[in-house]
């Protein structure tokens, strides 16, 4: 079988992941109704680094990403099998509440989706529903910290009351990142975060991602191989619902083990 490569062993071998993996997936299968979207995915993802998922459209990389914070639960016909562990704990175990899980595994989507509220309320949304701030000052502090981390504070500090939907696309995406940071997650999932943005905004987001890597485990789906090469330390290549190959970004792009990976990164298909 051509999936005989064991990504698990490969990632543990890499020097940049000496500690236990943050996220650990074993034999993950995903079905939409009768259609299988993912086949036996095994993958380890390390903390405080950026991991990119690449692959042609419909290869299952977004599906896998959405498994990590159980967003697939919101789709009725979707069924997930196999184990995904976060810090050694099975996130699909019966006693795990997706609400808590999603608070520690934040997500940023392809299209910026600020809520139709003020900038302040957008960032304060998470802390409010989870009851993270005990008084207004604390809440303001959380909002400010999050916006600073997302690199948006200087641009919006004087107009926190204005609607978040009035910002530019790149600003909106950073607002959404700030919104995710505000609940102090450990992992941030990003589903093609720059695909709807212009090059300048993309550059800013990439900078931000590189910045955030120091504190969070970041997992990113991207269409752009250049972006994966620029910002990520690890890369996983998906094809037709299977994980073909995973490893340090440098190795995947310069010396892939699998023929299909080679074909994809050299532009033969995709």
């Amino acid at each position: 079988m051509d999936t005989s490569v064991s990504p698990a062993t490969q990632t543990t071998d890499t020097p940049s992941a000496p500690e236990a993996p943050k996220v650990r997936a074993r034999k993950v299968n995903v079905f939409y109704g009768n259609k299988q979207a993912l086949f036996d995915v095994n993958l380890d993802i390390s903390d405080r680094s950026v991991t990119s998922f690449i692959g042609p459209s419909g290869c299952g990389k977004s599906t896998f990403l959405r498994c990590i914070n159980r967003m697939n639960d919101t789709i009725d016909i979707c069924r997930v099998e196999g184990d995904i562990h976060l810090d050694g704990k099975d996130i699909y175990a019966r006693d795990v509440d997706p609400v808590i899980l999603r608070a520690s595994v934040g997500m940023v989507f392809q299209k910026p989706n600020p809520f139709p509220k003020s900038i302040f309320d957008n960032v304060a949304y998470g802390p409010r529903i989870h009851g993270l701030a005990s008084n207004p000052e604390e809440l303001s502090e959380i909002v400010e910290t999050s916006l600073r981390r997302a690199g948006l504070w200087t641009e919006v500090a004087d107009r926190l009351d204005e609607p978040g939907t009035g910002l530019s696309g790149g600003q909106q995406q950073r607002l959404v990142i700030a919104r995710a940071i505000a609940v102090r997650p450990e992992v941030i999932l990003m589903d093609e975060p720059c695909s709807a943005l212009d090059p300048i905004a993309t550059a800013r987001i990439e900078e931000l991602i590189d910045d955030l890597r120091n504190n969070y485990c970041i997992i990113m789906v991207t269409h752009s191989m250049a972006q994966a090469a620029r910002v990520s330390q690890h890369t996983a290549f998906f094809h037709l619902g299977k994980l073909v190959e995973a490893g340090p970004t440098e190795q995947i792009f310069t010396n892939p083990n699998d023929k299909r990976t080679q074909d994809y990164i050299t532009g033969r298909f995709g």
Binding site: D97, V99, I100, A103, S104, I129, H130, G131, L132, V183, R184, P185, E186, N215
Partner: peptide, 21 residues
Amino acid sequence: TEPAKSLSTRALIAASLPRRY
């Protein structure tokens, strides 16, 4: 300090859960 903070966050959220449900 991040992990510790994160843990207390989780505890806070867990405490709010019964009310929210």
